[in-house]
Amino acid sequence: MLTIAIVEDDDGIRLAYSDLMSSYGYEVRTFGSAEDFIASACQDLVECLVLDQQLPGLSGLELQARLKRIQCTLPIIFVTSHDDPVTRAKAFENGAVHFLNKPIDADELVRCVADVLRRGR
C-alpha cells in the first residue's frame, strides 16, 4: 500500500485530506507540524508529502530545505492559502512537484498525488 504524509496544522483540514486520501486506498500519516514530521523519522517510509506552507515553527519551505540538505528526495505537493510568486518559485526551485492554493479542489489534490506517485522518487 502506498503511503502519503500530510503536514497541516489545521486539524479539520488535516482530517479532511487524510479521509480523502484514505478513501482512495492510500495509507496516510498525518502531522500537525514540520517538527512532528521530522521527529517521526518516516521520511523514507512515505512516497509523497502533502505540505502546508504556513506552519507554526518551521514553515513548509524550511522543512523542504531541511529535507534537501539530508538528500531526502521525497516528492512534495505544497498547499497554501498565502500564495505569492516568491514562495511559489522557491518551492519549485527546490524540487516541489505541485503547488496548490487553498481552498483546494479535492479532485485536483487526488490528481496531483497520483501524478507524484506515477513519477516516483
Results as ranks from 00 to 15, higher is better:
Leu67Glu: 06
His82Ala: 01
Tyr24Gln: 14
Val86Pro: 06
Ala96Met: 06
Leu51Asp: 03
Ile13Gly: 12
Asn94Asp: 14
Arg66Ala: 03
Ile13Asp: 14
Val50Phe: 03
Ala89Val: 09
Ile13Val: 08
Gly32Lys: 10
Gly57Asn: 09
Ile70Arg: 15
Val79Gln: 04
Asp52Tyr: 00
Asp10Ala: 13
Met21Ser: 03
Val50Trp: 00
Arg66Glu: 05
Val79Thr: 02
Leu61Ser: 03
Leu55Asp: 09
Ser23Met: 14
Tyr26His: 13
Arg66Ser: 07
Ile77Pro: 03
Ser33Met: 01
Ala65Pro: 00
Leu63Met: 00
Arg14Ser: 07
Gly60Glu: 09
Gln53Tyr: 15
Leu63Glu: 03
Phe37Ile: 06
Cys72Tyr: 02
Gln54Cys: 08
Glu27Leu: 01
Ile13Pro: 09
Thr73Lys: 03
Gly57Ile: 08
Val50Met: 01
Asp52Cys: 10
Leu20Glu: 13
Tyr26Lys: 07
Ile70Gly: 07
Leu100Arg: 00
Gln53Ile: 13
Ala16Ser: 14
Leu100His: 03
Ser59Thr: 12
Cys72Gly: 01
His82Val: 01
Ser40Val: 02
Leu20Ala: 10
Tyr24Val: 13
Asp83Trp: 08
Gly57Phe: 15
Val86Gly: 08
Leu51Gly: 00
Ser23Ile: 10
Phe37Gly: 05
Gln64Arg: 06
Pro75Arg: 06
Ser23Lys: 08
Ser22Trp: 13
Phe92Asn: 05
Glu27Asn: 15
Cys42Ile: 08
Ser81Ala: 13
Gln64Lys: 07
Leu67Tyr: 00
Pro56His: 09
Val86Ser: 14
Leu61Lys: 11
Asn94Ile: 01
Asp19Leu: 14
Asp11Ile: 12
Phe78Gln: 04
Leu63Ile: 06
Ser18Met: 04
Ala89Lys: 10
Phe37Val: 00
